[in-house]
């Protein structure tokens, strides 16, 4: 993970894919190691006798036949574990990212919630009012208990970045914090610099 996500754990610039990366890495490493090991055995580096033995080694088959019950139980268990893990990874990878609603009033009788689209729309409108911002996009991400904001700003050419940067915290994010009644709103901002040309007189 990058430093950006480490310092602000609740907000990330893009959808976090740590689990997906880890799965890909582990499966890739297993494939690489298994393939290389099979090549090493086949090349005869562990002895020519071993290279000439069948892939389904009679010794292993004899051992399995001797422990049939254990092997079957293990096979069924391993199969079930693989099934559950595989489905979990699949669901996680294809599931759309969650956009939680802000709960303003948590009393059991009244519940006041602000939809993520409303928050995102308000923040986007505020951000686009900042001088130099050509376009903005806002998303509410994270969980219901730890909501975070993801903001992308497209800046015009020649924009003074320091001014945008101050307006961002003092106006846009401060308004959002006040409206939602929170002290802290973890936010990840991505700036796209120099995206729209300045108007030139022809």
């Amino acid at each position: 993970m990058t430093r950006a996500t480490r310092t602000t754990p609740a907000a990330s610039v893009a959808r976090p894919i740590a689990v997906e990366r880890a799965v890909t890495l582990v499966v890739g490493l297993l494939g690489l190691l298994a393939g290389v090991a099979a090549l090493v055995v086949g090349a005869g580096w562990l002895g020519h006798g071993r290279a000439a033995r069948p892939v389904l080694d009679p010794l292993a088959m004899t051992w399995l036949a001797g422990h049939a019950a254990l092997a079957r139980v293990l096979a069924v268990l391993v199969g079930l574990v693989l099934l559950v893990l595989g489905l979990a990874v699949l669901v996680r990878a294809v599931r759309p990212e969650r956009h939680p609603a802000f709960v303003l009033d948590r009393s059991p009788t009244d519940r006041l919630r602000v939809t993520p689209a409303a928050v995102a729309g308000a923040v986007r409108a505020d951000a686009e009012r900042v001088d130099g911002v050509a376009r903005a996009r806002a998303r509410v991400v994270g969980s219901r208990d730890r909501p975070a904001l993801r903001l992308v700003l497209w800046l015009r050419e020649g924009t003074d970045l320091r001014r945008v940067w101050h307006a961002l915290d003092a106006r846009v994010l401060e308004r959002a914090r006040q409206a939602l009644g929170v002290d802290q709103l973890p936010t990840a901002v991505r700036l796209e610099l120099d995206t729209a040309r300045r108007q030139r007189v022809r």
């Binding site: 602000t8 610039v13 890909t24 690489l32 940067w165 915290d169 802290q184 973890p186 936010t187």
Partner: peptide, 27 residues
Amino acid sequence: LVLAALTARHRGIRLHSPAPEVSVTTS
């Protein structure tokens, strides 16, 4: 697969944070 997993990082460039819980990056 290993290469794909290793290269799928954020390659953003960090800018100063205006507040502790706000992170600002650019591409």
